[in-house]
Design a protein around this nucleic acid. Structure first.
Lengths: 341, 341
DNA sequence: CTGAAAGCGCTTACAG
DNA sequence: CTGAAAGCGCTTACAG
């Protein structure tokens, strides 16, 4: 079944069939209905490759998740994927999902670029990439429409790059202020991946917030991490082996890190929040059910991706020179992992 | 950049460029290298729409997840998606993921069919569909290559339908035998969705296993459910409101249902396993961390989807009349939610 | 309002 | 070993 067949059966030309499919105004109702009847009756759907080749959009966007080898098959990831798919679907777009295990692997990078150059997709969203990831820069430079989460706009912003971030600064401020309000003065931090934008911004936010509250930062209590449960566990584990003064509260770069940290603390006989307070970031789906229920800074990934997807598709449909940037606020959620000292 | 440009720059015809791209044997090394150099230098990737239109495959498969409205954004779902994507990727295929909220909605169904008819994908995998779901039957009848999880092969099996299932019968037998071995004689069950194949097969497996162990089935202890946490909670909640004799052990249709059941039991002051034993099915990622750690029947979804994806792609690349069916075994994992009576 | 025709960028028999 | 040409199934100026 193709448009020629439909045309023959409806007694019109392919041009007219095409006009009906594409909702041209200059088709009389009678003709339109005649054609539609055949289309419905024969279950005809235009071949998408032919449409794309003739200049239409693929109506497909790419979703690229950069997930390191030791992937935590995380509830969050699932939510991100589903958010993008559902919002794209609401705009009539399909999503080609792709997982990037190693953004440094040449073969992998080639595959990702291929997807754009082959014109499989009209644009793409990248989640979890390093700030200034070179191959993403290349794609932007090539003019492809790209949405990125957790990266900064470069000096000279481009209109085909859409940037989405949380207000990490304000989040950290809320966390520190809350702890300070509970009487904590000795506050430590477990950092995230410093190659991603949110790593350094959260840390800088922490430093600024500490200063604002008139609190000293103890460099021994600034621990390295990488946004994973394991890294929170390792950070605390290593830290506790060395004897020395301990903080009364710890801010983790995200909730997964907080889970790992609490696990390590428990193993060392330290109860949360009795012996030490812990605060996370994200409000992961498990944080509420965690023991103790995790106090954290809530962030709305679903809303972010909804906005990002919508703007991406809008850009695809109507390229404009607007520079688009999304910044979402976050807010403190008080549960049971912090106590007054 | 297109094949004409490449041809011009390499000083050959488009035919030759195409032969190089498609690895034809009859191209001398010298010519091949000349062309490859231009391709590499100019970052040329053939337009996929043109290739598909000319008869090549899209190298894309569809992944359709039927997830009810009140979706549990589940760790399992994430694992399923990632499994399919990674195994498809290993075969050089892309995955178009699509979420079906309501398989009874005409518009939704039309969209799914469209994806096949438009030739966006070379085949598709359906997870979570009802047994004999009509629109999947239609797609199979149209000759599309389809992989389904948790459905039965019809009377007259088709070679373009690949069926993947777990050996639920054996799983239930293991669960009942284990409980019987612990001295339980009063065993209840919370069923799954009876519209899906695994719903009735698990229940039938339960009945058979009970008979095999010489145990009586008490109809009051056969509770309705639907594979969701909430349904396990509801089932137990409703059941406990009615006074009467209680079972000493309950088998849940899956781990999510078991979680819900345990939550409800706790609320009624019944501890697991002290007052009642509970056994799940699946070995969900959270089961090990659950309190109490859940005894369950382990099932390997990742392996199943790896096999299904591989066979689907093999069928796409080389259609054959073989009837393909996958059945994976499951095995008991003993943890802490069951005790001897 | 509608049709004939060019063009999108490939692949692949066909001929040499 | 290689090129010219037909064909895949659409869309869209162009002409009427």
């Amino acid at each position: 079944m193709n448009s020629i067949e439909v045309a023959r059966l409806a007694g019109v030309s392919r041009s007219t069939v095409s006009r009906v499919i594409n909702n041209y105004a200059n088709v009389p109702n009678e003709t339109r209905e005649k054609v539609m009847k055949v289309i419905q009756q024969y279950n005809y759907f235009p071949n998408v490759s032919a449409q794309v080749l003739a200049g239409k959009r693929a109506r497909t966007i790419g979703l690229f998740l950069i997930a390191p080898g030791h992937v935590s098959s995380d509830i969050l990831t699932n939510m991100l994927i589903v958010s993008v798919i559902e919002h794209a679907s609401a705009c009539g777009y399909y999503v080609l999902t792709h997982i990037i295990r190693d953004a440094k692997d040449t073969e992998t990078v080639k595959n990702v670029k291929e997807i754009f150059f082959q014109r499989r997709i009209d644009g793409g969203i990248f989640i979890g990439a390093a700030n200034h990831e070179p191959f993403i820069e290349e794609l932007v430079a090539e003019g492809f429409i790209v949405g990125v989460v957790d990266q900064e706009h470069p000096e000279i912003p481009q209109s085909n790059r859409i940037v989405a971030n949380f207000n990490n600064d304000s989040g950290m401020k809320q966390a520190v202020a809350y702890l300070a309000g509970l009487g904590h003065t000795r506050i430590g931090v477990i950092n995230g991946d410093m190659n991603r934008l949110s790593g350094p911004t959260k840390y800088e936010g922490f430093l600024k917030a500490m200063q604002l509250c008139g609190l000293q930062v103890n460099r021994d209590w600034v621990l390295e991490g990488s946004f994973h449960e394991e890294s929170g566990y390792e950070a605390i584990h290593t830290f506790l082996r060395i004897q020395g003064e301990r903080p009364t509260a710890i801010i983790a770069a995200n909730d997964s890190v907080a889970f790992g940290a609490i696990r390590a603390l428990k193993e060392h006989g330290l109860q949360v929040p009795e012996h030490i307070s812990v605060i996370g970031f994200d409000d992961h789906a498990l944080s509420e059910k965690h023991h103790p229920a995790l106090t954290t800074i809530r962030v709305d990934f679903s809303d972010m991706l909804k906005q990002l997807t919508t703007i991406l598709i809008a850009k695809i449909e109507k390229p404009s020179s607007d520079i688009r940037e999304i910044t979402l606020d976050c807010c403190l959620v008080i549960r049971e992992s912090c106590r007054r000292v």
